[in-house]
């Protein structure tokens, strides 16, 4: 992974010494005081975690309502569906009625993910003239494999992903990168479709950071090398402050929430 070539000087020592001087601290030998970074787990840790993880049906429905309300403000379409296969047929309908932005062939790319498998897209699209690419990959994909996947990505006009969390208050989908979950699927195709389960909807950004930091389940994975928040389709207002969707990323964004 490390690029070869000569070892460059990082300039770190001189740089930090200079900052220490500016801050009026004795320079050089001081060990980093990690106490400014870590925070003791809050006393209500267990309580908060159990609250977050044991929302009942009614709480979850409330969060879904809040999410839908906020999503409408950022032009993100949210469609609740009972089951995965209903989501699958909804996606099929979307594919049939949406035309590609570039070219005429219809190709769709989807993450390799158990939740997306529930959609049964392969069967759904069997009789249609639509190519379905899945981002399945070997444990350490080489250049050739990555370039093949990149071609698939570029051919696709709809990208289908899941999400790790969905923050209701700001209508934000949170995705961490990992094997089988290339980040460009939510970015390069003209339409981004996300499929989530209702219990993935959380209240706030503050809950998100709390869980990422203190929930043992999330802590293990951490933020990964790339965690992305997506709140609506790509947009710009750079010409006379007129809002236009589809600046560089997806022009349209649809979230199917499986409620069953």
């Amino acid at each position: 992974m490390m690029p070869s070539g000569n070892q460059k000087k990082t300039g770190e020592h001189e740089f930090i010494t200079n900052i220490q001087k500016a801050l009026g601290r004795p320079s050089g030998s001081v060990l980093p005081d990690q106490s400014v970074l870590t925070q003791a787990p809050p006393p209500d840790l267990e309580h908060r975690l159990s609250l977050y993880c044991s929302r009942n049906r009614q709480d979850q429905t409330k969060l879904l309502d809040l999410f839908m309300e906020q999503a409408a403000l950022v032009n993100m379409k949210v469609i609740p569906v009972e089951t995965g296969s209903l989501a699958g047929s909804a996606v099929r309908e979307l594919i049939l009625k949406t035309e590609p932005e570039w070219g005429i062939e219809k190709s769709v790319i989807a993450w390799q993910d158990p939740l997306i498998e529930q959609l049964g897209l392969k069967e759904q699209l069997a009789s249609d003239n639509v190519a379905l690419f899945i981002t399945q990959s070997s444990p350490a994909p080489g250049l050739e494999e990555r370039e093949e996947k990149r071609r698939h990505l570029l051919e696709s006009y709809i990208g289908i992903t899941t999400a790790d969390f969905c923050v209701a208050e700001s209508a934000t989908l949170v995705m961490r990168s990992g094997p089988g979950r290339p980040r460009a699927v939510s970015l390069v195709p003209s339409v981004h479709v996300a499929v989530i389960k209702m219990d993935q909807i959380i209240q706030s950004l503050s809950e998100l950071y709390f869980r990422l930091k203190f929930d043992p389940k999330e802590k293990e994975q951490g933020l990964t090398n790339c965690m992305t928040f997506i709140s609506g389709p790509s947009k710009t207002a750079d010409i006379e402050l007129v809002m236009v969707h589809g600046a560089h990323g997806p022009r349209q964004m649809i979230v199917y929430v499986i409620t069953g």
């Binding site: 906020q70 403000l73 950022v74 923050v167 208050e169 700001s170 209508a171 934000t172 950004l205 933020l223 990964t224 090398n225 790339c226 965690m227 992305t228 928040f229 997506i230 709140s231 609506g232 389709p233 790509s234 947009k235 990323g249």
Partner: peptide, 11 residues
Amino acid sequence: QNMAGYVSYIG
């Protein structure tokens, strides 16, 4: 805005 359209944590 309540939240910017895209925020990425890159590490």
